[in-house]
Design a protein around this nucleic acid. Structure first.
Lengths: 144, 144
DNA sequence: CTGTGTGCAAACTCTTTGCATAAGT
DNA sequence: ACTTATGCAAAGAGTTTGCACACAG
């Protein structure tokens, strides 16, 4: 459980990950990890930072997101199209993708009753399994 | 079964899809559908066409791939990173992704013993489920 | 002080678009 | 002939990079 609303030890998080707790990393870390699981693009996080009066450049946001990802604090989510999403939930889980608005939501493990993995080919091993469940709004029973 | 090595009715395929059987579409269609299931990017298909002395521009390759996709002849595969892959296998199936070389391979349904779907949220319905199994080379037991 | 991080802007990759020309029916 | 497709090159989106300055330890 690390979705504490108020204070959280971002500095410790960064240090443990071997990253210097600089102003920008602290601020971005607070935005990312301060309020439950989130799914953001670099641009979204940048805009959010600006709104919170955190002076940070888009390039630094990209750098920071990648550094966090390499440190295991974030996970990249594969969605077709150009935008890259980063997920603050690094545990083994999957995603719902709302096609109409591009929103992303974690799939709680209870919602996946059974999920057996296929056998990898000879000499290969599975590094990760990404499951993306694409959703569209259910049509109202209006007409055929 | 449409993985016939030699002749295949690309013209009919296009006509049925409501697409004019032009030189470029015929040629690209033959490359795409003429030899089993394939996973290609626009650039890969373009290079292949050039090698086969098929004069076609990259822009036309992109257009054609999207037209084929809309017509249901291809399926886009979501992989993180910038490149978009197109899969000639439009049936319900999943993928192995070889991280070291970016290669893609279909997962035969026999290899997935059980795969139950999560319940979609209220008012939503599943339009598709993408499963990407990421593979890395198994480390040889050389040292710790 | 020393080294790493940051900002800026330019570069880069992949993809899409506009318009004149060419090809298909 | 009339319509739709193609080629080219330029534009566009998202992301990365290089270098001088600023900040953390």
């Amino acid at each position: 459980m690390r979705s504490v609303e108020g204070k959280m030890d971002v500095a410790g998080l960064l240090k443990r990950a071997g990253l210097r707790p600089t102003r920008q990393r602290m601020a971005l870390g607070a935005l990312l990890f301060g309020s439950g699981d989130r799914h953001l693009t670099a641009e979204m996080l940048h805009m959010e930072a600006i709104q919170h009066s955190i002076p940070v450049s888009l390039a630094t946001v990209y750098n920071t997101l990648h550094q966090f990802t390499e440190a295991g604090l974030l996970r990249e989510v594969a969605i077709e199209g150009s935008k890259t999403y980063f997920d603050t939930n690094t545990s083994d889980h999957h995603h719902f993708y709302f096609e109409h608005d591009g929103m992303l939501m974690d799939i709680e493990s209870e919602m996946v009753p059974v999920m057996t993995m296929p056998e990898p080919p000879e000499g290969m091993e599975i590094s990760r399994v990404d499951v993306l469940v694409r959703l569209v709004a259910k049509r109202q029973p209006q007409e055929g």
